[in-house]
Design a protein around this nucleic acid. Structure first.
Lengths: 207, 207
DNA sequence: CGCATTGGAGAGTGCCGATATCCAATATTG
DNA sequence: CAATATTGGATATCGGCACTCTCCAATGCG
C-alpha cells in the first residue's frame, strides 16, 4: 500500500504521516523504487497506536516515541519495564528537589522504595506542593485512603499482567500505564457527580 | 506593595505578572497614581494558586481562568458547582460523538446520569476509544473494578465537602477536582512499582 | 509520451505561554 | 529642583510544538 492509501485507511493526512516518519514514530515503508514505498497493515496499526498515545494519552511526540521504543526493545525482566516505561513518560523531576515528604509517605505505606526512579516520587512531591500552594488542606486521612485505593488498583492491574511472553507483558504494562490514566480520571469525575448528586441533590431518595 | 515587590515575594517575573493581569488571572492592583499600583497579600496568594493550577494541575491559562471564575462566582447549590467546575476544565467533547458506550457503563453502575454534562461522558468514551485504538484489551471486569474504586474515592471526597459555607464547598470541590488528579496518578505509579516488585522481583519474600 | 503521484527534505503556520521593548508619567535621590 | 530609576500599560517578539505546505527530481500509469 502506498502512502496515500495508508492515509485514507488511517484517516491521518499524508503530511502528518511523513512527519511521524521523520520523528521516528513510524517505520519507513519498504522502498520499491526511488518514489515508491510499500506500507503494510502493521503501519495502519502503528498509526492507530500513535494517535491513541497523542490524543487519548495526552503524550507529546517525544513521549510517544519513548513509549514506542519500549514496545520494540527486547526486555529481560518484566520488573524492570515498569520503571523504564514510567520514567520515559514522566518529565524527569528536576534534580535537586526535596523528596522527603513523598519518600516518607511511601515508606509509611510500606511501598518498596525504588532506588533509581525519582520521577514518580517527584511527581508525588509536586502534586502535594501544588495542593499546598493552592491552600488546599487535604483532610486528614484522605491521602491514606487515596493510597489504599491506588494500591488496590495497582495490585489488580499487576495481577493481570500476562506472563506468557515478556513482550506481551511489556505491551500491557506500558500501554496500561499511559492509556488508563485518562480513563481513571474520567471515571472519577463521573463518580463524583453521582456521589455529589446523592448527597446534595433535590431528587435524592432520602437524606 | 508594588509589582516588583510582588514579583520578589512570589518568585514570578514581573513580565509574567503583567501577562496574568492581562489574562484576567489576577485582579488589578489599586492605582495610587498613573505609574503606581498597590498589591496586597491576596495577590500573593492568588499567584500561588495560579501557579499551582498551571504547573501542578496542568491547566491552560484559559482553564485556570475558568476555574478562578468559579471560585469568585457566588453559587446557590453545591450540587451545581461540580458540573460547572468539571466542564470548565474539560475541553468540551466534540459534539456529535457517540456516547452510547459510556452512557451504558454509567447506567450499569447505577450512577446518576447527568443531563447537561456530556463532557465527562465524552472523556470516558474518548479514553475507551484510545484503548481500543491501541489494541489494548482491558481484561474483563477490570473496568468494573476501576469504577468501583473511583466510586469509593468519590464518595469519600464528597463526604469531606465542607457544609458551613457554600464558598468553602466550592473551593474544596473545584480545587479538589483539578489538583488531586496528578496526585492520584502519581500514587498509582508508585503503587504499581510496589505491586510489580512484589510479583516479579527477585527479592520478594516468597512466590 | 505526458500528466499525476511519490518520497524526501526544508521552510512555513498557528497557537500558546511567556518575555522583551517602548513610552510617558511618576517616584526617588542628590 | 534636576537627574536618574521605576512603574503601569500597550505592543511586539520569542521559543517550543505539532503540524502543514512547498518544492523537487524520479517515477508510475494511462
Amino acid at each position: 500500500m502506498r502512502i496515500s492509501q495508508l492515509s485514507e485507511k488511517s484517516g491521518v493526512p499524508v503530511a502528518t504521516i511523513k512527519y511521524y516518519l521523520r520523528e521516528g514514530l513510524l517505520h519507513d515503508g519498504v522502498l520499491t523504487s526511488a518514489t515508491q514505498a510499500h506500507y503494510g497493515e502493521e503501519h495502519v496499526e502503528r498509526l492507530r497506536l500513535v494517535r491513541a498515545l497523542l490524543d487519548s494519552g495526552g503524550l507529546s511526540v517525544a513521549g510517544a516515541r519513548a513509549v514506542i521504543e519500549q514496545l520494540e526493545t527486547p526486555h529481560r525482566h518484566v520488573a524492570e519495564v515498569l520503571g523504564i516505561a514510567q520514567s520515559s513518560v514522566t518529565p524527569d523531576a528536576a534534580s535537586g528537589i526535596e523528596l522527603d515528604r513523598a519518600a516518607g509517605l511511601v515508606a509509611r505505606w510500606g511501598w518498596g522504595s525504588d532506588p533509581g526512579d525519582t520521577a514518580s516520587l517527584g511527581a508525588l512531591e509536586h502534586a502535594l506542593a501544588g495542593l499546598d500552594a493552592a491552600g488546599f488542606d487535604l483532610p486528614e486521612g484522605v491521602l491514606d485512603q487515596y493510597a489504599a485505593h491506588m494500591a488496590a488498583i495497582a495490585a489488580e492491574e499487576v495481577a493481570e499482567i500476562p506472563t506468557e511472553s515478556v513482550d506481551a507483558a511489556v505491551r500491557y504494562v506500558v500501554l496500561g500505564t499511559v492509556l488508563v490514566e485518562p480513563l481513571l480520571l474520567a471515571l472519577r469525575r463521573l463518580a463524583q457527580q453521582d456521589a455529589s448528586g446523592r448527597r446534595f441533590d433535590y431528587r435524592g431518595p432520602d437524606c
